[in-house]
Design a binder for these strands. Structure first.
Lengths: 339, 339
DNA sequence: CTAAATTGAGCAATCGATTGCGCAAGTTAC
DNA sequence: GTAACTTGCGCAATCGATTGCTCAATTTAG
């Protein structure tokens, strides 16, 4: 009784027809008379019929669910990408299932399995920092589940990806600091060799060299790019005989940490040290001074990833050719970097 | 071939046994010999068998998926609650399906339907600001899907809920400002009459009265509590003959806006005006000065919501008695409010 | 040594929606 | 007036996993 779940059989019984007819009527099959269709619809309303997608999924072999795997949803970058994915996916009657790895490899593996068990039709993922072995994704791919990577990707995998041109973003950021008069520019990067951080480092390096400045490894600080890492890095740099007069961090939290420490030491930003971060997290424009940073167009990144998924799903039979979409990043100049 | 999806039937065929036996072997049924179990497990590995939860769900009538509906996941409060839910849910082999309403009523209704179609076993929700009609949730409840509300709830619905004691939080915040010497305290609240904002307003009012200060509606500013609303509100207040010397905002973004405007006007915080917000968003401790605020224990809120769900699911037959868990908020005193 | 109990596994139905095939009644064509 | 369609709908299988009921083969009990 309370289990108000009614099925097409209940409707069929009520109308003295078969479930097949009800199914077809609900799906607007041409071979069903208008009268029957109307009757079915009315009965469905009365019985509060709610289609059971699970049953349909079992039959069709597709769940209309896209699995999304991100390190963490409480970072604006990721939650915005998710929103971008949802936007496109929902329009095509897909739902999303969002999972977090918290940058933990085991959790990522478990998550992929959970999503496969849930029979997702595809997976859109940004890898955990820890991940270096991608077998779990390869396994999924072999089962015919398309995998689309974004942001933290891996070029060696035969899977489509959407990234921002990290090299270009880093180049722009660094060059901007140089144009503002910085001559000793430091860079915060990640200890792990993830593509995005490698690219940002490369952009930083090339910008220095391209503008006639020396590349000095002493000014490159490796860490985890979180707030605390930024603070530690800044403290270390301040002990150098010639501390930097400009800092480009590969993350937004890292540059925030640097800003805090500089302020605590009474060092003026941007007068004495200029700062640029990466990723347009909302707090970056709330700080004092507001932080210059690189906008990654996260919403568009999500859109693009979802579009690739839809494309791959509809071309399932055709030969698979992984595609790579590279979005152009944008330098957002705020107060932390202008003289 | 590429459709590497194998079923228990494939395993059965390979071993010349029936699917029933395979199923039981995989589920460690006592009536299956150890030898068979081992053989099945080996075969499952070789064939890369992945159980199809959809089929199991159809049979069992439960999907092991909890639907989560939040206004937006890119707010730390919500994403942390989600994490709290996941923590408990995953431990009990439940997956979550996260959906965003963006505070839009129609989207909320559509989302509830999508979740019901996906056969979720329960829904944990924080209502959209726009929502005043709750029929979509009542419908779900009638179908036997437990609904658990958190944060933005409604006392008139016969459904369990987890909230923070908004009244107490607001009272503490306001009293703190009073103790720091403020005599003209302003409050930013929401235009809509959502329970949490009503309670916070009440707490503010009672704290004033309880401490012998007058309650003056001119100091209460209604808005949408976003950054821009906070800015507007602050600008308006500064035009008053006697601008406030303390502000308690019902949101974190609102108080941030106030801080920005005050700094732009060269007004010193906390010396001239003291500030306290609500919700411990990460940026609140990154500002200069750092913002005092109310911690809502969002992780615990998520834990509690998930626990209630598990409880209700296991007591399906028993008489349903909605429960209400009220968490105690905590005042986090930072620099923006101490003299 | 036989009856009772236990072990191991197969048969077939079930969950709810979908769909190819078939069939009867009604239409149209020539 | 009959052959050829068309219309409207039912039958039954299917998707993959699960489970109550059976039943044969062993084992144990007495």
């Amino acid at each position: 009784m309370k289990k108000g779940k009614s099925t097409i059989h209940d409707i069929a019984e009520k109308l003295n027809i078969t479930a097949s007819t009800v199914s077809r009527a609900l799906n607007n099959h041409p071979r069903i008379s208008v009268a029957t269709k109307k009757a079915v619809q009315k009965a469905a309303e009365i019985l509060h019929y709610q289609p059971n997608h699970i049953a349909a999924s079992l039959r069709s072999g597709k769940s209309n669910i896209i699995g999304i795997i991100v390190p963490s949803i409480d970072r604006t970058f990721f939650s915005t990408v998710v929103r971008g994915i949802e936007e496109i996916a929902n329009a095509s009657r897909y739902n999303v299932m969002i999972c977090q790895t918290h940058d933990n490899y085991e959790k990522e593996v478990a998550t992929v399995n959970a999503l496969l068990n849930a029979q997702v039709d595809g997976i859109i993922v940004s890898f955990a920092k820890e991940t270096t072995n991608f077998d779990h994704f390869l396994k999924a791919k072999e089962k015919g589940v398309p995998i689309i990577m974004f942001d933290r990707t891996n070029d060696e995998l035969e899977m489509s990806q959407v990234v921002v041109d990290d090299f270009l973003g880093a180049y722009k950021a660094t060059e901007h600091l140089i144009q503002q008069g910085c001559t000793r520019i430091s860079h915060f990067t990640n200890v792990r060799k993830i593509n995005i951080y490698k690219e940002r480092l490369r952009g930083y390096k090339e910008a220095l060299i391209g503008n006639g400045l020396p590349y000095d490894e002493d000014y490159v600080v490796e860490g985890n790019l979180q707030l605390e890492d930024g603070r530690e890095a800044m403290k270390k740099l301040l002990l150098m005989p010639h501390p930097p007069d400009g800092i480009f961090s590969a993350s937004a939290y890292g540059i925030m940490g640097a800003l805090q420490v500089l302020k605590e030491h009474g060092i003026k930003v941007p007068e004495e040290v200029k700062l640029v971060g990466f990723s347009n997290e909302p707090f970056t424009y709330l700080t004092e001074p507001s932080l210059s940073t690189i906008e990654q167009h996260s919403m568009r990144m999500g859109n693009a990833a979802a579009e690739i998924f839809l494309e791959e799903i509809s071309n399932k039979d055709k030969k698979f050719i992984p595609q790579k979409i590279v979005l152009k990043p944008e330098l957002i100049i705020r107060k932390s970097s202008v003289r």
